[in-house]
Simulated scan of single mutants.
Amino acid sequence: MDISNNNLTGMNPNLELKLTNSPHIDLSLNQFEGCIPLFLLQAGAVQLSDNKFSDLASFTCSKSKPSNLVILDLSSNELKGELPDCWNDLTSLQYVDLSNNKLSGKIPFSMGTLTNMELALLDLGENKFHGPLPAWIGQSLHQLVILSLRFNNFNGILPSNLCYLTKLHVLDLSVNSLSGGIPTCVKNFTSMTQNFMNSATSMEHWYSLNNYLYVKYEYNLFLMWKGADRRYKNADKFLKTIDLSSNNLTGEIPTEMQYLVALISLNLSRNNLRGEIISNIGNFKSLEFLDLSRNNLSGRIPSSLAHIDRLTWLDLSYNHLNGKIPIGTQLQTFNASSFEENSNLCG
């Protein structure tokens, strides 16, 4: 059933329906509000994004209907308060998107019980979650391809068990209050060390709602891309990125990052990183976007940076870099603003 992209308003009645065969129901892009009707728990896929739903607890914590949910998309609604701690009753879930709401508090431990599913995307960005990053994300959700916790209030260090997420293509922890250093184990992000993308077939996400009905779902998310906040379609197919910008990270950029040669975008800007830019950064042959601005980086710009011919966005401004800017066809195309406020830099 698809009644998406209309101007339907008001509360959805909790109809006394018995849904069979775990149907796919799409009510997205309307103006529905209030509680999510409980009969939708019987559906296999429920798309409710871009509405005004405000109550999640009565839906996820209800035991009145058996849950068959495989896909739950509640992004861009008006959900507020803490996430309910009832996710262990929704063990059939394989896809959860709660981004761009008004959720706050800590991520409940029961979300870590969703470990038997092939959860490939977890997007809780643009909310008001706080506290340390939950350890169970790295310990349990080993199938994650996309992890986006951007624009929240997470604090504490980057836990090293994040490095267990070897299948990650997108790690976005930008605009939080994270501190400490970047773990040296980032080299364990093995999908970011391999220059090839998986074939289109293997990266298409088909979810089985019952024995004969499958639904295809694209992995779309908002991220900072070349200086602008944009919605990126099929991010898992076409993008390998790390964004740790706008935190309070300290220490040096670990040399182990040199192994992540498949990165297309790397944003470590607006932190307190010090030391030199890794000398082998020229090995990032696929890199299109590099932002290391507004840190305390020093030393010379590695000459190998001039070897990246795909680079279309570069920002090294507001650091303490010195010496001559390396000569290379690509580097000479960037505006002086890419290098400004480095008092001992010339060229």
Rank of each mutant, 00 (worst) to 15 (best):
T329R: 13
F339A: 00
D229N: 15
S174Q: 03
E341Q: 13
N161Q: 12
P13S: 11
I137N: 01
T333K: 13
L98Q: 04
N14E: 12
N319C: 05
F32M: 08
K128H: 13
H24M: 11
N211Q: 12
N247P: 00
N319Q: 11
K324D: 02
P326R: 05
F39M: 14
Y318H: 14
A43P: 07
N127L: 01
R294H: 12
L147H: 03
I308T: 03
L178H: 06
L290Y: 01
L38C: 03
L223Q: 04
T329W: 00
F189T: 00
N295T: 04
Q139N: 14
D85G: 09
V70Q: 10
G44H: 07
N247A: 07
G328R: 04
L149H: 05
S246H: 12
K285R: 15
S140M: 08
E218W: 09
S54D: 11
S54M: 07
A262M: 00
L56G: 04
L171H: 02
S279D: 08
S179H: 07
S75Q: 12
E276Y: 05
A336Q: 15
N283T: 03
S304Q: 12
M117N: 15
S67G: 09
L19R: 06
E276C: 09
S179Q: 14
L331C: 07
C86A: 06
N296F: 14
K52Q: 12
F189D: 00
S76Y: 09
L209S: 08
S99Y: 02
W136S: 05
C346D: 08
L305F: 08
S191M: 12
L345D: 00
S148F: 01
L79A: 02
H130P: 00
S337R: 12
F189K: 00
N344I: 08
N77M: 09
N14A: 02
N6G: 10
N30C: 06
M117E: 11
L79T: 01
G180H: 08
G112K: 11
C185M: 05
K52N: 15
Q143H: 15
L173S: 07
K226N: 08
P183K: 05
L90N: 02
I71W: 02
T115A: 14
T241P: 00
S199A: 10
P66R: 11
S279Q: 15
L38K: 12
Y318L: 05
T312G: 07
K240T: 05
C185H: 03
Y219T: 01
Q330S: 14
N210M: 10
G112Q: 10
A200R: 09
D123H: 07
N153K: 11
I157V: 06
L29F: 14
N188H: 14
A306Y: 06
N195P: 00
D85R: 04
T193G: 06
T9V: 15
K226T: 11
L165M: 02
L124V: 06
S177R: 13
V215I: 14
C86G: 10
